[in-house]
C-alpha cells in the first residue's frame, strides 16, 4: 500500500509574525518555519498503518514549499517515512486555498497513492479546506476529522470526531483521511532516523512534471485575494485592584465580576 502524507511548512506558532505591506502576504523569510503540528499526527498514523500492514507498504511525504522547506521534510523522514517529493517553484506564490488544493492533487496524481493522510488544518491559515478539495479533485472519498482509522479488505473505516461524540464513516480505497490531534501521540524522530534521513530520496517536482495548468495557480489562478489587512488591536491594560486587606480585595474583585455579569 502506498501511503502519501501531505505536509506543510508553517511559521513557528510562538514567533512574532508580520505581513509584507507590498505583497500583503505573511513575511515567511524573517521567521522560523516548522512542520505544521497537525501534520505530525498524520505522519504518525501513516507510520502505524504501514507498520501494521507489513513490508510492502511505504510512506511518502509530499509538500509544496520553497527549498528551505526541506527541513520539515527531513523531520518527517527522521520520524520514519520512506521517501518524499517536494514541489517548489516561485510561480506558486500567491496561490489561494483552492489553487493549492489543485496543485497538490496534480502532484498526487503524478506520484500515485492508495491512501492519503493529512492533518485537519494548518496552524497558519486554519481553513480546513484543502483535504476535502484535494479529494474532490482526485475523485476519491474524503473521510475527515478521523480520531481512529481501521483498514481492512480494501476499505477504510474511521471514527469521525464530532462535538457530541463520533460518527462511523467508511469508504473503499483509494481514499483521503484527515486526522485530528486525538488520534495518536506523534513520535519524536529517532537518532537513527535522523542519521538515515539524509540517505532517503527527496524527489524534486516541477510544475511541468505535474502538468499544472498555468491558469489555475499563483496570483492569476486564485479566485480569492487579500484586499487589505489590519493588525489586531492590542488588548487594553487590565484593571488592577490593589488592597491591603485580602478580604477587601476579594470583595472588590467580586463586585467587578458582578458588574460585568460574569458571576
Amino acid at each position: 500500500m502506498k501511503i502519501v502524507v501531505t505536509v506543510k511548512q508553517v511559521p513557528d506558532t510562538n514567533a512574532e509574525k508580520a505581513f509584507d505591506p507590498a505583497t500583503k502576504r505573511l513575511n515567511r523569510s524573517a521567521i522560523e518555519n516548522v512542520l505544521n503540528p497537525f501534520d505530525e499526527y498524520a505522519i504518525e498514523e501513516a507510520l502505524r498503518i504501514k507498520e501494521a500492514a507489513g513490508a510492502d507498504s511505504t510512506v511518502t511525504i509530499l509538500t509544496m514549499a520553497p527549498q528551505k522547506g526541506v527541513d520539515i521534510v527531513r523531520k518527517a523522514l527522521g520520524m520514519g517515512a520512506d521517501n518524499a517529493a517536494m514541489l517548489s517553484d516561485e510561480a506558486i506564490g500567491g496561490s489561494d486555498t483552492m489553487a493549492t488544493a489543485y496543485l497538490i492533487s496534480q502532484a498526487l496524481k503524478h506520484i500515485g497513492f492508495d491512501l492519503i493522510l493529512t492533518g485537519t488544518q494548518s496552524t497558519d491559515a486554519i481553513n480546513s479546506i484543502v483535504p476535502a478539495a484535494v479529494a474532490e479533485h482526485l475523485g476519491i472519498p474524503a473521510l475527515t476529522y478521523a480520531k481512529k482509522v481501521t483498514i481492512a479488505d480494501g476499505r477504510v473505516e474511521i471514527q469521525r470526531e464530532t462535538d457530541a461524540g463520533y460518527q462511523r464513516v467508511s469508504a473503499p480505497l483509494p481514499a483521503l483521511i484527515s486526522v485530528t490531534k486525538s488520534i495518536n501521540e506523534p513520535r519524536y524522530p529517532t537518532l537513527k532516523g535522523i542519521m538515515g534521513a539524509k540517505k532517503k530520496e527527496i524527489k524534486a517536482l516541477s510544475l511541468a512534471d505535474i502538468g499544472a495548468d498555468a491558469a489555475r495557480f499563483g496570483d492569476a489562478g486564485s479566485k480569492t485575494w487579500v484586499e487589505s489587512f489590519t493588525p489586531v488591536s492590542a488588548r487594553g491594560k487590565g484593571t488592577v485592584i490593589q488592597a491591603q486587606d485580602p478580604v477587601e480585595g476579594a470583595k472588590q474583585i467580586l463586585e467587578f465580576l458582578i458588574a460585568k455579569k460574569v458571576v
Binding site: 527531513r74 523531520k75 535522523i194 534521513a197
Partner: peptide, 10 residues
C-alpha cells in the same frame, strides 16, 4: 550539517 540541525531541533 543538516542531520545535526535536525538532531538539535529534535
Amino acid at each position: 550539517p543538516e542531520d545535526l540541525k535536525l538532531l538539535k531541533s529534535t
